Simulated scan of single mutants.
Amino acid sequence: MTDIRRVVLGVSGASGAALALRIGERLAALSGVELHLVVTRSALRTFGHELGADAIGRLVGLAARYHKIDDVGASIASGSFRTEGMIVAPCSMKSLAGIATGLADNLLVRAADVHLKERRRLVLLARETPLHLGHLRNMTAVTEMGAIVMPPVPAFYRRPLTVDDVVDHIAARAIDLLQLTDQPLAVEWQGEQGGFQ
């Protein structure tokens, strides 16, 4: 029996590259976590636009294994490859639609499909606004299949001072949904009188 806990991070082409990078950083920093990464072609373009040319290299450098988007024979494409869960951050509406319909035409969608069929945690940081009925129906479909849809909405009650504050909190909350640690990464709200502890 191994103490290594594998987590898959999928990155699609919606806006929100900073979320993917911070989640990767936080997962890589957790003891005993083996990070598996898969990135769509659109995400590569978004990363460069939002964070600069070297940002995707930083993310890839955090992963124990970087899987190519077309490698549908990769380990993470099989249910026999055990993981603690998968986060798709950000999750584009295209990737969401693929997951909702089981159209596993790339490794990110296939890995998400595997997590659903194996009843493992799948957290989707669905990123789009406004939403039309097709988006909402796809969110309902993946929720009915067992995924957790977590739009990356800022928690303004925390009174964030910077974009980094917002990104940190969303990343911590997404990782906490995988239940990898006994103590949550996100600072807990103690009510209006107690604030955060």
Rank of each mutant, 00 (worst) to 15 (best):
A97K: 04
H135W: 08
H135R: 05
S92W: 01
I69T: 12
L133A: 15
L107I: 07
L125D: 00
I76M: 11
R121S: 11
R119Y: 08
T101E: 07
R41H: 12
R41F: 06
V38R: 07
A104M: 06
G134S: 13
R41K: 14
G79D: 10
K94S: 15
P151Y: 07
H115A: 09
P130K: 02
Y66N: 15
H135P: 03
L108R: 12
A97H: 07
A89Y: 00
L51T: 10
I69C: 04
T46V: 14
Y157L: 06
E128R: 03
L51S: 06
E144K: 15
I148P: 01
M150H: 01
H135F: 10
H36C: 05
P151A: 04
L125R: 00
A55T: 07
C91W: 00
S80R: 13
V153D: 03
C91N: 01
C91F: 00
M139Y: 03
I56V: 15
A74H: 11
V114N: 13
R159G: 02
T143D: 10
L44C: 09
H49N: 05
K94C: 03
V142G: 08
R127C: 00
A126M: 12
S80G: 08
M145Y: 14
A100Y: 09
V142F: 14
V60F: 10
V109I: 14
P90L: 02
L103R: 11
M86W: 04
G102T: 09
L124D: 00
R65W: 09
V60Y: 11
F47W: 01
G73K: 13
I76F: 09
P90C: 04
V88C: 01
V39N: 01
F81C: 11
V114M: 14
L37Y: 05
L62G: 08
E118A: 12
T46F: 00
N106C: 09
V72I: 15
V60H: 11
A111W: 03
S80L: 09
F47C: 02
H135N: 07
R159Y: 06
H135Q: 07
R137Y: 13
V39C: 01
M93G: 01
L122M: 05
T101Q: 09
V149Q: 03
G79L: 12
A111M: 08
M86L: 15
E84T: 10
C91V: 02
F47L: 02
C91E: 00
G57N: 14
E50I: 03
T83G: 12
Y157Q: 08
K68P: 06
R127N: 00
A111K: 03
S75Y: 05
V72K: 12
M93R: 02
G146N: 08
G134C: 07
G79I: 08
G85I: 09
N106A: 10
H132R: 08
A74N: 12
L59A: 10
D54A: 13
V142Q: 12
V72Q: 13
L133E: 15
I56F: 14
R158N: 08
A64Y: 08
L44T: 09
V123A: 01
L133D: 13
A55H: 10
L107D: 03
L96Y: 02
G61T: 11
D105F: 06
Y66H: 15
R121D: 04
A64E: 13
V109W: 05
G73N: 14
L136A: 08
L124W: 00
P130T: 04
F156P: 03
Y66I: 09
V88D: 00
